[in-house]
Amino acid sequence: MTRGAGLALVACAILLTSLGGCSRAPHPPTVEPAVAPAPPAAADSTELADRPTTAAADSAAVHPSTPAPPAPGPPVPVRTQAAPAAPAPAATHPAVAALLREARAARAVEDLNRAAELLERASRIQPFRAEIWLELARVRLAQRRFIEGAQLARKARQLAAGDRALAQAAREIERRCTAASAE
């Protein structure tokens, strides 16, 4: 891989992510250049773009076995750093929204098996949507399948991604399921 190609690749990555910063990412000889993982949410891009480019970054190639010749400075709290890479939660897919609607309607008329199957279909389309798992936990609770309900509520909580109301609802269903299964 030529230096020029590497440059072009990285430049593309930078353009793509609308971030400024240094112009070349050094790579060890054994590893081909690769673009950085999923672009971060746009929220912090301005902050990073405003930062000055360091000259050192352009010249120093870091060999993997001998990391960074200048000794690193003291640790800094990550809390103060711009948080990247938490992907913005994707919007609910219209197909998933439709299945969720149907599932809620089915649960309302106590067609619980149907509700569960609709939700399983939805989970296959968007596996990281917490509300699908929460709704499924509600169905299992209604079916008195408490052990499954508790686990599904936990799964929902795990995917809540800062949605406090959802996490709270999931915690409540997990509590009810756990209590009921203990009886």
Partner: peptide, 22 residues
């Protein structure tokens, strides 16, 4: 991003990590 081999890495919110000097 764009400096070194930047990879999105989960760390505890209260962690402290040193900068790669360059």
């Amino acid at each position: 991003l764009g400096c070194g081999a930047a990879v999105a890495t989960p760390v505890p919110e209260d962690a402290s990590i040193a900068w790669l000097p360059r």
